[in-house]
Computed example of a mutant assay.
Amino acid sequence: MEATVASLVEHGWAGTTTTAVAQRAGVSRGAQLHHYPTRAELVIAAVQYIGAARIAEIREQATDLPTGPARTAAVLDMLARVCTGPLFHAALELWTAARTDPDVRAAVVPLEAVIGRESHRLTVELLGADESRPGVREAVQQTLDLIRGLGLADLLTDDGARRRALLADWARHLDARLGS
């Protein structure tokens, strides 16, 4: 799976073939075909792997977050790092493929729903947000959508300075909205 992710990041969907992944993983073509007879099966397994890895990455990075007034900005920065990292880039390749490949779409759409719910839940938890308050659920979702968009903007150029400034401003708005 790591070879598949690395191939997606380096070569994109079009360049990620079962042969290339087998070579990168250091396994024979026969072994690869035994476990994943088709590209679709390999990619579907990769979708599941990437989903679990993305959630694990958020949980792992969350252990180093500060408490107190700097927490919101730190949570946003951590989420932005996830959305500018290699797992996010690999996921984007799969989203692109899912747009036109029904087999990949059938695997990606339900998994992304699970990842979306878990990302939202983790963000609520990390921010200490009270979703029973009006507008809080929407503010958390706006945050996740903003960060995903900033991750997309970072694909073509280094957008770090602009992203940091936007997230610092959004952290102030979010703190006010959440009542932090």
Score class of each variant (00 low, 15 high):
residue 89 H to T: 01
residue 145 D to G: 02
residue 144 L to Y: 05
residue 133 R to F: 02
residue 76 L to R: 04
residue 154 D to Y: 00
residue 145 D to W: 13
residue 112 E to C: 07
residue 157 T to C: 09
residue 128 G to M: 12
residue 170 W to G: 05
residue 109 V to M: 10
residue 118 E to C: 07
residue 102 P to A: 10
residue 89 H to F: 05
residue 127 L to N: 07
residue 128 G to A: 07
residue 142 Q to H: 15
residue 160 G to M: 06
residue 125 E to R: 14
residue 157 T to H: 12
residue 141 Q to C: 08
residue 164 R to K: 13
residue 121 R to G: 07
residue 84 T to C: 05
residue 101 D to Y: 02
residue 149 G to P: 01
residue 131 E to S: 13
residue 162 R to H: 14
residue 130 D to H: 09
residue 86 P to M: 06
residue 140 V to F: 04
residue 126 L to W: 01
residue 161 A to D: 09
residue 102 P to N: 10
residue 136 V to E: 05
residue 129 A to E: 01
residue 170 W to A: 08
residue 130 D to K: 08
residue 110 P to T: 14
residue 86 P to T: 08
residue 88 F to C: 04
residue 95 W to R: 11
residue 83 C to M: 15
residue 93 E to G: 01
residue 136 V to Q: 04
residue 123 T to V: 11
residue 106 A to K: 12
residue 107 A to Y: 04
residue 137 R to E: 13
residue 152 L to P: 09
residue 122 L to E: 05
residue 161 A to G: 08
residue 102 P to S: 08
residue 94 L to M: 08
residue 149 G to E: 11
residue 167 L to K: 04
residue 124 V to C: 04
residue 89 H to V: 01
residue 103 D to H: 15
residue 130 D to Q: 05
residue 148 R to Y: 14
residue 85 G to T: 05
residue 138 E to R: 14
residue 153 A to P: 03
residue 169 D to H: 14
residue 157 T to F: 12
residue 97 A to P: 00
residue 154 D to W: 05
residue 130 D to M: 07
residue 92 L to A: 05
residue 148 R to D: 14
residue 99 R to N: 08
residue 142 Q to I: 11
residue 133 R to T: 05
residue 135 G to C: 03
residue 95 W to D: 04
residue 101 D to S: 02
residue 147 I to P: 03
residue 132 S to A: 13
residue 115 I to K: 09
residue 94 L to N: 01
residue 119 S to M: 15
residue 142 Q to W: 11
residue 84 T to F: 03
residue 114 V to D: 06
residue 134 P to V: 05
residue 121 R to P: 03
residue 87 L to T: 04
residue 103 D to K: 11
residue 106 A to Y: 03
residue 170 W to Q: 08
residue 170 W to L: 06
residue 159 D to T: 15
residue 87 L to P: 02
residue 111 L to R: 15
residue 116 G to V: 12
residue 103 D to Q: 15
